[in-house]
Design a protein around this nucleic acid. Structure first.
Lengths: 232, 232
DNA sequence: CGATTCATTGACTAGAATCAAATACCGTGG
DNA sequence: CCACGGTATTTGATTCTAGTCAATGAATCG
C-alpha cells in the first residue's frame, strides 16, 4: 500500500500545453446566465485549488472557460473525481456551510464567483432565481446519478466510451474531434480505473476503429454507433 | 444558512409509527414536514413499482415507513440501485417531466405522494418551501456524491462496511443492531458487486469480529472502529 | 538538446465475477 | 406441528478483468 505522500506525489500535476481551445466563453442561455450576472470573474492557472475539502463554503461558481475537477481524496491517496465542470456548469453547492469536495482547475480557467449570501438573499425574493437554483442542482444530481451507473456496472471499455461521448457532447464543437483538457490520471480517477487501463482501453478502441488518437489529448470519434452501443 | 441536511439526518427509524409522526409541531420547520402536509399517504406491497423508468413525473414522494430502491436497468439486465430511501427521505425529483430511474418498494412501504404541480405552484409564492426543495435536492446530491466514491474507489470490504455503517446511522435506532429491509441482490446492485461477493464479505467481516449475523437480515455492528476504518 | 513528466506497452498478480452446488429460510397446506 | 416446494443465502472451484509492477517511448520546457 503506497503512503499518502507517495501516492499523491506520483500523480504530480503536470503543466499542460497552453490550449486556446478551452476559452470559448459561456453561452448566454439557460439559468446559468441569470447567475453570471451576480458575481465577479476570477481566473485560475492550471491545477490551482479553487477551494479545498472542508473549506467554508462562501461562494458558488459558474465555469466560463476551461475546466474544473471536483474531487475527493481518501486517506491513502486514492482519489475520486466526482465531476468535470465545463463552460456553463455550476459547482460549489452545499447544504451545510462547508465544501465536501475540493475543486481544482484542470487547465487555465475562468469562473464567475458568486457570494452565496447574495444569491440566497435574492432567491428568497425572486421565484425565478429560486427555481433556477433548484433546476441547476437537479441537473447536477442527474449527472451524478448517471455516473453511478458507470462506476457501479460498466466495464472499462464502456466507461471510456461513455466518457468520450459525454465530453464530446458537452464540449459541443459540432465536430467529431474532442480535445481533452485533462490528463490520463484525471480520466482514470473519474472513471474508477487506473491510468494503464485507460491507456490500454483507448488503444483498444483505436484498434477497433471506434476512435482515432492523433495525439494523446485529441480524440476523433470515428464510429459513434459503436461507442454508443458501449454506452447503452 | 439554515442546515436542513442536519434535520434529515435525525429522521425517524423504519417501521415508523403511522404518518401522524410527521405532523408534530416540533417538526414543522423541517423541509420534509413541510412537504408531508401537501400530499396523501399511499401504501405499497413488497416489490411494487412506484413509478417506472421514463414514466411521466407527476409526483414527488416522501417515505413514511418501509424502504424504497431507486434503480436503473441496462439493456442486458445489469441493474444499478442509485439509492435506498428510508423514512424521511424524499425521492422523485426530476428536472424534465420524466423519471430517469424507477422506484420500487423494498418491503411494505408507506409514502406521501405530492403532486408536483401543487408543489411548484406553492414554491413560487413561498420562499421557505422553495428553499426546502432546494436543500432536499442538495442532500440527495451529496448522497449520490458519497456513493460515487464508494463505487469508484473502494474494494468489496470497504463497500460493505460503508453500507452497514450508513444504514445503521440512517435507521437511527441507537443500538448496534441493524435490520436490513433489502435482499443481498439489492445490496449487491447498490454496491456494484455480486450477491456472492456481498455474502462472502459479510462472512469475512463476521470472522474478523467486526460484525455478527444472527440471521441474514440482522446485522450487529460489533466493532464500529474497524468498520469505520474500512469506511475512511 | 537534456531533464522531466506523461503516456504507452508488457508481464504478471490479485480480487471480484462466474459457474455450480449445498444449505438455510419461509410460507403454505396437509 | 410438520412436510413440502420455492426462494434466498452461503460456500466452493475456477476464470477473467483490471490492477500492479516495471520498462520503454513520446512530449514538453527550460
Amino acid at each position: 500500500m503506497p503512503t499518502p505522500a507517495a501516492a499523491i506525489a506520483t500523480r504530480a500535476y503536470a503543466p499542460l500545453p497552453p490550449s486556446g481551445k478551452w476559452k470559448d466563453d459561456a453561452d448566454t442561455h439557460r439559468p446559468v446566465s441569470i447567475l453570471s450576472a451576480l458575481g465577479a470573474v476570477v481566473g485560475y492557472d492550471r491545477n490551482a485549488e479553487i477551494y479545498g475539502e472542508d473549506a467554508s463554503a462562501e461562494h458558488v461558481f459558474v465555469v466560463l472557460s476551461g475546466a474544473v475537477r471536483i474531487c475527493k481524496l481518501m486517506g491513502d491517496g486514492r482519489r475520486q473525481i466526482e465531476a468535470f465542470c465545463l463552460p456553463g456548469d455550476v459547482f460549489g453547492w452545499e447544504a451545510s456551510g462547508r465544501h465536501r469536495f475540493s475543486a481544482e482547475s484542470v487547465c487555465d480557467t475562468k469562473v464567475v464567483r458568486i457570494k452565496r449570501s447574495i444569491l440566497f438573499a435574492r432567491a428568497s425574493d425572486d421565484a425565478e432565481l429560486a427555481h433556477a437554483l433548484w433546476s441547476l442542482t437537479v441537473a447536477e444530481l442527474h449527472r451524478a446519478q448517471n455516473h453511478l451507473l458507470v462506476l457501479g456496472r460498466k466495464n472499462a471499455q464502456e466507461r471510456v466510451a461513455t466518457f468520450l461521448v459525454d465530453i464530446a457532447a458537452r464540449s459541443g464543437t459540432g465536430t467529431d474531434e474532442v480535445l481533452l483538457p485533462m490528463s490520463r490520471q484525471d480520466i482514470a480517477d473519474y472513471l474508477g480505473l487506473t491510468i494503464e487501463t485507460v491507456s490500454r482501453t483507448l488503444t483498444h478502441l483505436e484498434e477497433r476503429g471506434a476512435i482515432a488518437l492523433p495525439s494523446s489529448r485529441r480524440v476523433v470519434l470515428r464510429d459513434r454507433h459503436a461507442l454508443r452501443q458501449l454506452n447503452s
